[in-house]
Design a protein around this nucleic acid. Structure first.
Length: 477
RNA sequence: CGGGGCGUAGCGCAGAUCGGUUAGCGCGCACGGUUCGGGUCCGUGAGGUCGGAGGUUCAAAUCCUCUCGCCCCGACCA
C-alpha cells in the first residue's frame, strides 16, 4: 500500500491534508500558501458554483466581472476597511519594467473597485437596486495557510448590491444568508447555524455581519458563508448617491455576501471518514461508479457489455463513470473510489450478469452492510432512491453529530469545558470584555448570535450581568 | 513574527552521531507473465546536480558558516 490516510483520531489535521492530496482534490503549488485545484476538486467546485449560481439568478442577481488590480488609494477610502485588510495585501509596484506611479493592490475583496464603479452608474432611484455577483479569485497574504480553508489565493463569489432604502438592503442581506443556509443544507448536506456576528467578529467596514456556522468532524466551527449589511458607509466613502422620488440626493444602502472554495474543505471535514472523502450525491462529480469484475477474456466481454448498458441507462439522469481499467484489480478500485468519496458503487461480475442483477454499495455505510443486490429492471429507480437516501442520511448524520456535541453551559467553568468538546450556546451580555475573556481563557470565540433564540435567556455566562441573547461559542478554523 | 519539524529518484524514507571512492530501501513508473467478488504475485529494467552557495579535508549526503524553501502548532483571517 503506497499511501495511507492518517486516521482522524490520530491526527485530524494530517487526516485532512492526506484526504485532499490523495483524493486529488488539490496539491501544493510552488508558492507558499498557494494550491493547485486539480480536476476532481475543480469539478466539485463547478458543481458548487452551478448550484449557487442558479440560486443567485433565481433571486434576481446578474453576474459581472471587475478587475483584479485596484488602485491602492481606493482601499484607503473606507477607514475601517483599510485597517482590516492592509496587513494582508499583495501590492504590485512595478509594471512593464517601470515603477508604477501608484501601487496597485491585488484584490483581497472587491468592495472598493465595485463601489467606485457604482458611483459612476447610479444616478436615480430608477437605477436601483443593483444586484451584481462576481465569480473571481482574490489574494490575502495570510500568515498561516491550510488547503482550501485558508489559502493565499482563493476562488469565491462576491455579491455586491445597492439599494434605495435601509430596509431593502437589510432584507437582501438576510435573503442571501438564507440562500447560503439552504444551499449548505440541501446541496452540501451540512447543517448550519445562522446568526449575526458580534461587533468584534464582523467584516471590516460593515455595520452588521451575518454568517452560517458549521461543525466540522473535530467539533470545531467553520464559518461557511457571510452576508454583510453596510448601510451607507461605503456609499459615503465612494460618493454613491441617487435622486430619490422626492428629488432629494441620497446615499445608497449596500450589502455584500460571499462563499469561497473553503466550502470544499467543509465538505471534506463534515462528511469524510478514515477511508477518505464522502461526497454528498448532489455535488459529487461522479455520483455512481461502475466497477466490472472478470476472470478471463470471455467474462470480460460479457461483463463489460452489461456494464456498458448500465452506464448508458444511468447516464441520462446521473453522473456515472465506468471504471474499465484493466491494470487495476476490483479491490484496488473499490478503495480508490472510496477514497474519492463517490457516493454509490455498482459492482457487476459474471454471477450478476447471469442473474440479471447488479450489486450496489453505499459509500456512507462501509462493508457488507452497505451492499445490496438490485435486479436489472429496477436499476434507475433504485439508484435514484439510494442517492436521495445517501444525501438525506449524510445530513441527518452530520446534524446528529452536531447535536451530540452541543452544550448549554450555565456557568463559566461549564462553558470552558463545553468549548473543548464542541459548540456551546450560552447567554452573553454583549460586552467585548466578556467576549475577549472567553477567547483569552479558552481560545473559543463567539461564532454568531443565532437567529433562533430560546424563550428565556439567563444571565451572562461570563460576568453574570443580564443578557438578552444567547450566543454560539466555539473554537473555530 | 514566535515555537517545532523537514529538504537525498515521481512519492515516502534510510544513510549523518563516528567523512572513505559503485548512495540504498519501499511504493510508484516501463516491459513480460500471472491474477482479478475488498489495495494479486513474480521477474527484468529505467530513474539521483543528496535544496542552494561558500568553507574545512587527500576525500563531504555526512563536519562548519551562510542562505533559500516547504509543512505542522500559535497570534491574524473566508
Amino acid at each position: 500500500m503506497a499511501e495511507k490516510i492518517t486516521p482522524r483520531s490520530e491526527d485530524y489535521s494530517r487526516w485532512y491534508t492526506d484526504v485532499i492530496l490523495q483524493a486529488e482534490l488539490a496539491d501544493y503549488a510552488p508558492v507558499k500558501g498557494c494550491m493547485v485545484i486539480r480536476p476532481y476538486g475543480y469539478a466539485l467546485w463547478e458543481n458548487i458554483q452551478q448550484a449557487l449560481d442558479r440560486r443567485f439568478k433565481a433571486t434576481g442577481h446578474v453576474n459581472a466581472y471587475f478587475p483584479l488590480l485596484i488602485p491602492e488609494s481606493y482601499l484607503r477610502k473606507e477607514a475601517e476597511h483599510v485597517e482590516g485588510f492592509s496587513p494582508e495585501l499583495a501590492v504590485v509596484t512595478h509594471g512593464g519594467g517601470k515603477e508604477l506611479e501608484e501601487p496597485l493592490v491585488v484584490r483581497p475583496t472587491s468592495e472598493t473597485i465595485i463601489n467606485a464603479m457604482y458611483a459612476k452608474w447610479i444616478r436615480s432611484w430608477r437605477d436601483l437596486p443593483i444586484l451584481i455577483n462576481q465569480w473571481a479569485n482574490v489574494v490575502r497574504w495570510e500568515m498561516r495557510t491550510r488547503l482550501f480553508l485558508r489559502t493565499t489565493e482563493f476562488l469565491w463569489q462576491e455579491g455586491h448590491t445597492a439599494h434605495a432604502t435601509a430596509e431593502e438592503a437589510m432584507e437582501e442581506t438576510l435573503r442571501m444568508l438564507n440562500v447560503y443556509k439552504e444551499f449548505a443544507e440541501t446541496e452540501m448536506a451540512m447543517p448550519v447555524i445562522a446568526g449575526q456576528k458580534s461587533m468584534t467578529e464582523k467584516f471590516a467596514g460593515a455595520l452588521a455581519s451575518y454568517s452560517i456556522e458549521a461543525m466540522m468532524g473535530d467539533k470545531r466551527a467553520l464559518q461557511a458563508g457571510t452576508s454583510h449589511y453596510f448601510g451607507q458607509q461605503f456609499a459615503k466613502a465612494f460618493g454613491i448617491q441617487f435622486l430619490n422620488k422626492n428629488n432629494e440626493l441620497e446615499y445608497v444602502y449596500q450589502t455584500s455576501w460571499g462563499v469561497s472554495t473553503r466550502l470544499i474543505g467543509a465538505l471534506v471535514m463534515v462528511h469524510g471518514d478514515d477511508q477518505g472523502l464522502i461526497l454528498p450525491p448532489r455535488l459529487a462529480p461522479i455520483q455512481v461508479v461502475i466497477v466490472p469484475i472478470w476472470r478471463d477474456e470471455e467474462q470480460k466481454r460479457v461483463v463489460l457489455e452489461a456494464a456498458g448498458q448500465v452506464q448508458a441507462r444511468l447516464s441520462a439522469t446521473t453522473r456515472v463513470k465506468l471504471d474499465d481499467r484493466d491494470e487495476y484489480s476490483p479491490g484496488w478500485k473499490f478503495n480508490d473510489w472510496e477514497m474519492k468519496g463517490v457516493p454509490l458503487r455498482i459492482e457487476i461480475g459474471p454471477k450478476d450478469v447471469e442473474n440479471a442483477q447488479v450489486v450496489l454499495a453505499r459509500r456512507d455505510i462501509p462493508g457488507r452492510e452497505g451492499k445490496q443486490t438490485c435486479p436489472m429492471e429496477a436499476l434507475e429507480s433504485r439508484v435514484a432512491e439510494l442517492l436521495a437516501a445517501i444525501q438525506a442520511d449524510l445530513y441527518a448524520r452530520a446534524l446528529r453529530f452536531r447535536e451530540e456535541n452541543t452544550f448549554y453551559p450555565k456557568t463559566y467553568a461549564e462553558l470552558a469545558e463545553a468549548v473543548e468538546n464542541g459548540f456551546a450556546f450560552a447567554p452573553w451580555c454583549g460586552s467585548v470584555e466578556c467576549e475577549a475573556k472567553v477567547k483569552e481563557d479558552t481560545k473559543a470565540t463567539t461564532r454568531c448570535i443565532p437567529f433562533e433564540q430560546p424563550a428565556e435567556v439567563g444571565p451572562c455566562v461570563v460576568c453574570g450581568q443580564p443578557a438578552e441573547k444567547q450566543v454560539l461559542f466555539a473554537r473555530a478554523y
